[in-house]
């Protein structure tokens, strides 16, 4: 089963990278863009037929490794 996860900084946490990218986009002339937040995207192949079990495992991985729960949130996308 293929599952993907997106990790982003929590809403209130400063995102220096997003800030710099946003400014550059504006400088390049894309005037309508108002904000950019940068995150990470993971595609995970998991050998588990039971969807609920797979979900639990991925949750656990997100909490323990892929995200830094102090400053980041994660969203898991199931296909």
């Amino acid at each position: 089963m293929k599952i993907s996860a997106t990790v982003t900084l929590k809403k209130d946490v400063l995102d220096p990278q997003g800030k710099a990218v946003n400014q550059t986009i504006k400088n390049m002339g894309f005037k309508n863009v108002t904000d950019v937040r940068q995150g990470k995207y993971f595609e995970i192949e998991i050998d588990e037929a039971n969807k609920e079990k797979a979900k639990e495992i991925i949750e656990d991985i997100c909490k323990k490794l892929l995200s830094n729960v102090v400053i980041e949130d994660y969203i898991i996308n199931y296909k």
Binding site: P16, Q17, A20, V21, T24, N27, M28, Q38
Partner: peptide, 14 residues
């Protein structure tokens, strides 16, 4: 340059 954000050298190259 630009904190190495996005990719190193990328934003400066613009």
């Amino acid at each position: 340059s630009y904190g190495d954000y996005l990719r190193t050298g990328c934003i400066a190259s613009k």
